[in-house]
Nucleic acid binder design. Structure first.
Lengths: 166, 166
DNA sequence: TTATGTTATGTTATATAATAACATGTTGGA
DNA sequence: TCCAACATGTTATTATATAACATAACATAA
């Protein structure tokens, strides 16, 4: 059997990689984390995470529901939203507000404020670590207790930027 | 007649100020800008901006619609969304994705990537300038052409942070 | 002035996203 | 075994946003 290589732009860069190994890696991480923290990794939760990590692209709740339906699961809206709440709360998945969609975390297990760069041409999304950009260099924010941050940067990725000098 | 002082946390800090002067200031700026750029500052557009700058708090489209209705304007959803599109496009108003709401810009006329700090206790929102935090210090983002950014920071503002040392 | 293109406003209907409220199932101890 | 906590399931509804189309206002060229 030939090894199928799913090439996608994900993770900490827009670089290519073998996405199957990547999937496995994050699924393993998740199983380990749930085990250690006595969280129930139920079939439904596992399935939703699997759906999200498959292509590692942002998916809306209703897209996820459609896939769940096709694959024999219940598919009323609260099913997806509840599982997504769980996955987001535990840090396995992030919500991308600007797209009303959800994406598997690229740095699971590693403390971070998630940030995303979104190419508006190819629609690929990459998660980047944002520690270096925080706290924002502003007097205002100095005394502000940051708990969560939503950083979504829209633009053109290198691959789509035809005008760039190669 | 007594001068009514509306005290609110807005602008580049969570500091107090006379919000009436502030309103006037931004309305003037807007008029000037529209004049110079031959943009039509119609009664509807003026009204929506006025609604947003009144208390300088984020308002949802349907909240704005309700106010428009009370004040004698048409109030079907596209009315608000279209005017908001205009105001956002011209930079007079920003959309806060995390709250599905809109807020008058605090740095109108000044080139900037907007960023917000949102206190989840008192719900006040402050806009801060974000130049200093961009581009994010990450190899990934180096080659990425940033066009737009959405930065929303959730936490506790100094006034609400009871635990802080005074 | 009239014709014409453009922009703004208006209406109805509908799409899309998210949650409330409540019922049933499952599981893991006291 | 019983109970408590959690997970899944259903129906209905709320909230957010847009499509599609109609009319009005306004500038400007014939």
């Amino acid at each position: 059997m030939k090894t199928k290589i799913n090439v996608n732009y994900i993770g900490s860069s827009f670089d290519r990689h073998n996405h199957e190994i990547c999937n496995e890696h994050y699924t393993n991480k998740m199983e380990k984390y749930c085990d250690e923290n006595s969280l129930k990794l139920t079939p439904l939760r596992r399935k939703v995470f699997e759906i999200l990590i498959r292509d590692h692209k942002p998916l809306g709740a209703y897209q996820i529901l459609a896939i769940l339906k096709k694959e024999g699961f219940a598919s009323s809206p609260p099913i997806a939203y509840r599982v997504l709440d769980f996955l987001v709360e535990k840090g396995f998945v992030h919500k991308i507000q600007g797209l009303n969609s959800f994406i598997a975390c690229s740095f699971a297990g590693c403390e971070h404020l998630p940030a995303f760069i979104i190419c508006r041409k190819c629609d690929n999304v990459a998660e980047i670590k944002s520690e270096n950009t925080f706290p924002p260099a502003s007097d205002t924010a100095l005394d502000f207790k940051i708990e969560e941050a939503m950083i979504e940067i829209l633009g053109i990725c290198p691959a789509c930027d035809v005008s760039r000098v190669i």
